[in-house]
């Protein structure tokens, strides 16, 4: 058995070297400017760290009390088996104000880490003024009523038009779910999109000048 164990050891070591090579190829081939990130559960690590730590067990999806979270299928590529949610269909209600978030509690790894409700940063709500009823002469306060932090994350101006305060917005998507327009006038942009865009903006030749926001996430 000793000879076999040594062979195993050598084989595993050789395999590790091959894996290191493959990993380098994978890293080199991965595009730096990805778009269309998924909305992660509250408390998720930054996307790359999340994908590294998540073991794809799906416990968060099963424990979610409002059946918000979904499990990405194999066609999601590197995100296969990870949790995400679609706020227009199932917004995250942050466990309805309970003291702890169920998905974070059950996560066996650090992929979802403990976080205060107000510090949750799933993404940011963006209001499209062209589609928003309030900006087009109709009184509508659907997003304000849905927001878990009304008056803080979503505030009205003197004409009852909503504005999102991104440093207060947790990205739960309740406003997107409540928005009566079709397509939705308010949309959650995943945190990762914003972070990547910001790094792109800091680069000298970036064409993407659309969003210039102060403050840090």
């Amino acid at each position: 058995m000793d000879a076999l164990s040594r062979r195993q050891f050598i084989a595993t070591g050789g395999g590790a070297l091959v894996g290191v090579g493959l990993g380098s190829v994978y890293l080199a081939s991965r595009s730096t400017a990805q778009t269309g990130f998924l909305l992660r559960p509250p408390g998720a690590l930054p996307e790359d760290d999340f994908l590294a730590a998540c073991i794809r067990c799906g416990q968060c999806v099963e424990v979610c009390p409002s059946d918000v979270l979904r499990l990405a299928d194999l066609d999601a590529g590197t995100s296969a088996g990870t949790p995400y949610f679609v706020p227009a269909e199932t917004p995250c209600d942050l466990c309805q104000g309970q003291t702890s978030l169920k998905c974070v509690d059950t996560c066996p790894t650090a992929a979802l880490s403990r976080v205060e409700i107000r510090d949750v940063d799933i993404g940011e709500a963006h209001i499209c003024k062209g589609k928003c009823l309030a900006y087009n002469g109709t009184v509508c306060r659907a997003c304000w009523h849905a927001c878990p932090f009304p008056g803080e994350a979503i505030v009205f101006d003197e004409l009852l038009r909503p504005t999102v305060h991104i440093d207060k917005c947790v990205g739960c998507g309740l406003c997107e779910f409540a928005c009566p327009t079709e397509p939705k006038a308010v949309e959650i942009v995943p945190r990762e999109n914003i972070v990547r865009q910001r790094t792109l903006l800091q680069q000298p030749k970036s064409r993407n000048q659309r969003r210039q926001r102060g403050g840090s996430s």
Partner: peptide, 26 residues
Amino acid sequence: PQVIKYVLLGCLVGFAAVAAFPLFQI
């Protein structure tokens, strides 16, 4: 050959180390 699966095991661990990605779980 038994060697193959130990090579694969090593591959996955090496891949996780460099690419920071748990490939086998996918």
